[in-house]
Design a protein around this nucleic acid. Sequence first.
DNA 1: CCTACCGATCGGTAGG
DNA 2: CCTACCGATCGGTAGG
Lengths: 196, 196
Amino acid sequence: MVETRRQQIEDVASALFRERGYPRTSVRDIARRLDIQGASLYAHVASKEDVLWSIVERSARCFHDATRPIVEHPDLTAAGRLREMIRAHVGVLTDDLGQATVFLHEWRYLSQARRAAILAERDAYESRFRGVIEAGQWAGEFMTGHPGLLTRAILDALNGIAGWYRPDGPLTAHQISDHYAELFTRALESNPEATS
Amino acid sequence: MVETRRQQIEDVASALFRERGYPRTSVRDIARRLDIQGASLYAHVASKEDVLWSIVERSARCFHDATRPIVEHPDLTAAGRLREMIRAHVGVLTDDLGQATVFLHEWRYLSQARRAAILAERDAYESRFRGVIEAGQWAGEFMTGHPGLLTRAILDALNGIAGWYRPDGPLTAHQISDHYAELFTRALESNPEATS
DNA sequence: CCTACCGATCGGTAGG
DNA sequence: CCTACCGATCGGTAGG
């Protein structure tokens, strides 16, 4: 309830960036939704890009924080770990669709230096998923295959959810992530009856 | 070799729209790459949006044309049909990355009416994939599941390829589409040994 | 947080 | 295909 003005700006900007895209959203558009003048925004933010950066950074942190504990969890099979990571990823995505969509699609409008930072973070995140798949293959729990390709297929499918998910749609976020978790663990497990 | 000026403009625009996004690409950017003046572009096109529309429309047609014959092909199992559709889809995608990426990501900057037309076309395209999955389920060839969700997972994963595929990368487009075809048919087939 | 204002850039037109 | 030009809008600053 005690939301700072800065946070309000980022919330409004997330929604707008998602609807119209970052370049098509003017600082006046953001200000209008807050019932203030365009120039007044600069009392709270240094630049339009700073707002985008805050949103993208926060979203990246959410994805990291949601999946890190799962990787570190001791007693889980690879399939169980993957299942939980899929659930966590979809959870973050659907929990704040605006923020996540901006993270996924508008980061390219960041300055070169910040773009590079986000790319590095995404690589690390992808590696975390790939690590689970590779571990499952070593353990003989997963079929052998191209771990990098499998990881990308999974993450692209998950991220695609942001493109069509509706909070008031026929399927809850949990139902969706359960279906996806089953789909991909089924695809990976060499002997399907070994469900953990 | 005999490429019309109009086609040259669309090729240059595809590359630019992909690199910088449609709103961040000015008509002067396009003209500069063709060594003409910005205003001279209007001797060949009616508007900037018209160029985007041409690219998007052509790409949509490519996807349709590549997959239609497969659905109509008489003697193919559902798994075989899905496999071929995945290969065709990835083929179109990687064959003209610029065009396909613009189709996938920049169509949202089209006018309301044109956006609606593209959305309808995408729905029809998605239905084509879903139809194959549903047919496979009726025939007992595929596990039962949520056809709409499975379709989206597949298409989102395939479209995601446009985000990281490099023509000079370690994997050819064919290798990638084969891996994806295997991944998803494996996930769908209730008894994995029945490979067609 | 406001008013007033700035230079830059945009898509597009007129007229050749 | 060019030169010259237009009105609109942009992100951002000055000064309160």
